[in-house]
Amino acid sequence: MNVAVDTQLPVQRIGFARKSKAYFALTKPRVIELLLVTTAPVMILAQGGIPNLWLVLWTLVGGSLSAGSAGAFNCYIDRDIDRVMKRTSKRPLVTGELTDREALVFAWVLGVASIVWLAVLVNLLAAVLSLAAILFYVLVYTLVLKRRTPQNIVWGGAAGCMPVLIGWAAVTGSLSWTPVILFGIVFLWTPPHYWPLSMRYRADYASVNVPMLAVVRGRTVVGLQVVLYAWATVACSLLLIPVAPMGILYSVVAVLAGGWFIFEAHRLYSMAIRHDEVKPMRVFHSSISYLTLLFVAVGIDPLLHF
């Protein structure tokens, strides 16, 4: 099936408050929230205690601008399929609250502002990593991978791992094995987090020829991949214990929360094998809770020894 023709909807006259809300929605704020959850705790771990609070603020603001820019570019590039998919029917370029030009200008302004902000107020390495995240998400994931391969979210998800590197670089001015492992946790977590969502919206992705794994493979295959990546995620999280090193709090949370995440992944797979009604959003939501708990433990654990 061909994707609908990309036509610009008539421009609506809307008030300042509604316009501002539309710009905010363009940044994909829920994604930003998740990225911030992984940034601040890493800064505490890098410092071995509470870092300079101004530095934390500058880093979180710069990271939010960077992620918002990537999200806005994504909405602009994918506006043709967003106008077809039900899941994205409320996005501002679909509703006509923003024009294509407004979205593109906004994306560029946020992107440039984020790089300058981080370079001036944090450090050059954080700014370079932020630029790399934007370019990877926009050029590699959105333009190259998303519409061409079911592995899109696997490799494209690397952009979402950059905040842990940015947070570490903001405090130390360098990188080491600890942030690399943290990067690996988020990288391996992304597929079992997103693939259940793609199962829920399989028809949407199929309607616009986006080859998400759930579109090109059966539920059993997707369920098995979710299980394998969940195990890999938890295994990677345990590597942080001897390398960082982490204390008892992180160790307990990593084991218990990781066990819960794996259980939910196996539950999804079992339901797919038995041809029961699959509830993929349960794994989707539990994956968010798992990552949040894990990174909260990353931030609290060093404070117990401060």
Rank of each mutant, 00 (worst) to 15 (best):
L228R: 02
V37W: 03
M1A: 08
V31Q: 02
G160K: 05
D301I: 04
V208E: 01
D82Y: 01
Q225H: 09
Q47K: 12
C236S: 04
H275I: 10
P196I: 08
C236V: 03
L239V: 00
L34T: 05
V56W: 05
G96A: 02
L110I: 12
S287D: 11
G49A: 12
A113L: 12
H285G: 15
G259N: 07
V255G: 08
V221D: 12
A113N: 10
A297R: 09
A133T: 07
L224Y: 04
Q225C: 01
A70I: 09
S289Y: 14
A257H: 03
A103N: 04
A72K: 02
I50G: 11
H266K: 11
A206R: 06
A25L: 12
S270Q: 13
T172N: 11
K86F: 00
L124F: 14
S114L: 13
G156A: 10
R87I: 00
A46E: 04
P92I: 00
A158V: 15
P179Y: 07
M162N: 03
L131E: 11
Q225L: 02
P92E: 01
N52V: 08
S286D: 14
L57V: 15
P192Y: 08
M281D: 09
A206M: 09
I241N: 01
S289N: 14
V37F: 05
P150W: 04
A257D: 07
